[in-house]
């Protein structure tokens, strides 16, 4: 079938991709590898951008792309089972085709603001997914960026996503430090225990870095407070938002925060910019 070569310029019409590999990350998160039907990327993108994935007749939803665009072979999506479409996706097997369109959103400023900077990534739970794209992008363009610190936490050890990459790949690289934490003590875990915001404060980073945060809203809120206490300005911190989306191009009208559309003007916002918007997210 060669129907993914649809030439329609209608931004709402997807192309067809295929799931080539599925990895179980946690009890409710799987990472799906997607390529075009003929292999390769379905479209080019920058770290932090998203794509609409759908199974016709089941649903369509926006997911952040978790792989780095330096990977030219496939895209990856880490997807938590939490709704009609994601329940369905968790049941599929490799070889399943999906409808895909994108990329959407602004992405992280990897080629401008972040260049040459020491970077601090802070993630909670599935919030690592969009940051992973940036982390791997920076690692693949290592000379363009300074030191990389990754603080990552989840409810339990089982809920940490991309654990192999965290422990054996990123942690083994020069000038890359991984700091893991889980909410409560558990058997077999000899790492740090405690919430991410507290751990950030404990680790006490110096303020000469740019910070990228993603996780549940409550975690982001307290992390921003912790960073504030460490002396970070909100203008040094970037985060990525998630609201309900349908079109992805700023026309369907549902993902706005004030006059900004998360699908188009976001999902990445600098925290001082975000703060100037009405608190409706």
């Amino acid at each position: 079938m060669s129907n993914c070569s649809c030439n329609s310029t209608n931004a709402l019409v997807p192309t067809i991709g295929v799931v080539t590999d599925i990895r179980v990350d946690t009890p409710d998160v799987k990472t799906f590898r997607v390529t075009g039907v003929q292999g390769g990327l379905c479209f080019d993108y920058v770290p932090g951008q998203c794509a609409m994935l759908s199974i016709p007749g089941v649903g369509e939803a926006m997911f952040s792309i978790t792989s780095s665009p330096t990977n030219r072979e496939y895209m990856e999506f880490s997807i938590k089972k939490c709704g009609i479409l994601t329940d369905w996706l968790h049941e599929i097997e490799p070889g399943q085709q999906v409808a895909i369109r994108g990329p959407y959103g602004n992405g992280f400023p990897v080629d401008t603001v972040l260049k040459g900077r020491d970077l601090l990534f802070i993630a909670g739970g599935i919030g690592l997914a969009p940051l992973r794209s940036v982390i791997n992008y920076c690692i693949d363009n290592r000379k363009d960026y300074g030191t990389i610190d990754i603080v990552y936490g989840a409810r339990s050890a089982e809920d940490l996503v991309h654990i192999d990459e965290l422990k054996t790949y990123w942690n083994s690289l020069e000038n890359v430090s991984v700091h893991l934490t889980i909410d409560n003590p558990q058997e077999g875990w000899d790492g740090h225990v405690g919430f991410v915001p507290a751990y950030v404060q404990e680790l006490g980073f110096d303020v000469d870095r740019t910070v990228l945060v993603c996780g549940p809203p409550i975690m982001i809120k307290f992390t921003l407070a912790s960073l504030g206490e460490l002396g970070f300005e909100k203008s040094q911190v970037y985060t990525t938002m998630e609201l309900k989306m349908k079109c992805g191009i700023g026309t369907c009208g549902r993902c706005n925060i004030g006059s900004k559309y998360v699908c188009k003007d976001g999902p990445v916002f600098r925290c001082d910019e975000l703060e100037s918007l009405p608190a409706e997210y």
Binding site: M1, C6, V13, I16, G57, G95
Partner: peptide, 14 residues
């Protein structure tokens, strides 16, 4: 669209 097994066919657009 038409779905057959694991395949999805985009049959027409607007």
């Amino acid at each position: 669209f038409r779905r057959r097994g694991k395949e999805i066919e985009l049959t027409s657009a607007e």
